[in-house]
Amino acid sequence: MEIYVCIGSSCHLKGSYDIIQLMKEKIAECNLEDKVTLKATFCLGCCTDGVSIKVDDQIITGVSTENFDEIFKRYVLQEVEA
């Protein structure tokens, strides 16, 4: 699985840095390093509802530190385990 975190201007201002840190922690915590590749990308084209991430081919917008755990569980953990 590949996860891209948008680091374009808008998303950056909305907290890409924190999301990337959380991603790194979570991936390590769940021992997913060999299953998940984390990358950054410039602009997923959803600037108004950042932070945007892309999990394989699915774009998820509005990721924040508050809803991060929930999003990680739903789009990453469940997918990896499925």
Binding site: I7, G8, S9, H12, S16, Y17, I20, L38, K39, A40, T41, F42
Partner: peptide, 17 residues
């Protein structure tokens, strides 16, 4: 392809590509 780095040398400045 544009390949973007994940390394923040400064948390306030988005990584380079």
């Amino acid at each position: 392809p544009v390949i973007t780095s994940l390394d923040y040398h400064d948390p306030k400045i988005p990584p380079t590509g």
